[in-house]
């Protein structure tokens, strides 16, 4: 009897609460299990992106092709034609399009994550769900877009092979999935980091708006790294600290055999990406709880 009573007290003291709402949270307090429970919502967001993208357009998903085609043609004209920048012997169309497809994926992931709070404040202000759902959905829907654009790149690539161009296609190509994950993580991480920092103080927003286009020139998208090495070796470090450089160079190397590829450098990029990603995740997780009060 006495024992029963005691256990009763114990159970009532150790009541199980499903949700505890407080101000303080631990730094690494990210609820992945909850995120998993909301996986349907991630898919709904991805679906919504696609449905709304081509609603009331005539060309629909074809727009995914048109943008890289025209940009590539423009690059061929301006950088290849007028400026005469070498592409290390690779056909210009392949070179530019390869760079563009990668760069687009990174910058799309980045912008989606960077706009999470400002473009969803209506929803976030009314209902709770793990905020991480939105940037993750962004990465996935951009992945589909990447798939479409990558197939375009492959089509161009195969066209040139049929034309008799010889590419040094090599085993590095097996790294491409890793490169994509790295680009996604980098875009997601930096995007979340900056979006978290710009909620209260919007100064960074101004930097970001032109910084992204500047970053493209600090990444070997439209020129090979070898050119810079030859002409301005004193500025090479700028590109080398940029974690995107290794990703793009490896990508181009995998398909064309030209470009700079080193395991060490890829490892550096991988470490930086991981650090930025985790940092972004933590800051984002911290900020999301109170952002409605400050945005």
């Amino acid at each position: 009897m006495h024992k029963n009573f005691q256990s009763l007290i114990l159970t009532s003291m150790e009541e199980k609460w499903d949700i505890i709402i407080t101000n303080r949270s631990k730094l690494f307090d990210i609820d992945f299990r909850e995120l998993w429970r909301y996986r349907d919502l991630v898919l709904m967001y991805v679906k919504r992106d696609f449905i709304t993208f081509y609603k009331q357009t005539i060309l629909g998903p074809i727009w995914y092709f048109i943008q890289p085609i025209f940009t590539t043609i423009m690059f061929m004209f301006v950088f290849g034609g007028i400026a005469g920048i070498s592409t290390d012997g690779v056909p210009q169309a392949v070179f530019y399009m390869g760079g563009l497809v990668c760069w687009n994926y990174f910058s799309d992931c980045f912008s989606r994550s960077n706009n999470v709070f400002s473009s969803n404040k209506g929803i976030f202000g009314k209902v709770y769900f793990p905020r991480l759902v939105v940037p993750i959905a962004g990465v996935i829907s951009n992945l589909i877009k990447l798939g479409i654009q990558f197939s375009l790149f492959l089509a161009v690539y195969i066209y040139f092979i049929c034309q008799g161009v010889h590419f040094n296609f090599n085993a590095t190509v097996l790294l491409v999935p890793l490169l994509i994950v790295m680009m996604a993580a980098l875009g997601l991480g930096t995007g979340m980091l900056i979006s978290s920092l710009t909620i209260k103080y919007r100064d960074l927003n101004f930097l970001v708006s032109f910084g992204l286009s500047l970053l493209m020139y600090a990444t070997p998208v439209i020129y090979p790294l070898s050119i810079l090495k030859a002409s301005h070796p004193q500025y090479l470090w700028v590109l080398l600290i940029n974690p995107l450089t290794a990703i793009l160079e490896t990508f181009k190397y995998a398909f064309t055999g030209v470009g700079m590829f080193s395991w060490l450098y890829l490892l550096y990029s991988f470490v930086i990406t991981t650090v930025l990603f985790i940092w972004g995740l933590l800051v984002f997780n911290r900020v999301q709880r109170n952002f409605m009060d400050v945005i």
Binding site: E15, W17, D18, I20, I21, T22, N23, V127, Y128, D293
Partner: peptide, 16 residues
């Protein structure tokens, strides 16, 4: 606060 749109400055809410 209850719906976790924003968090409290002080105090705790426990929900089952």
């Amino acid at each position: 606060i209850l719906s976790r749109v924003t968090s409290p400055t002080l105090g705790t809410i426990k929900i089952k």
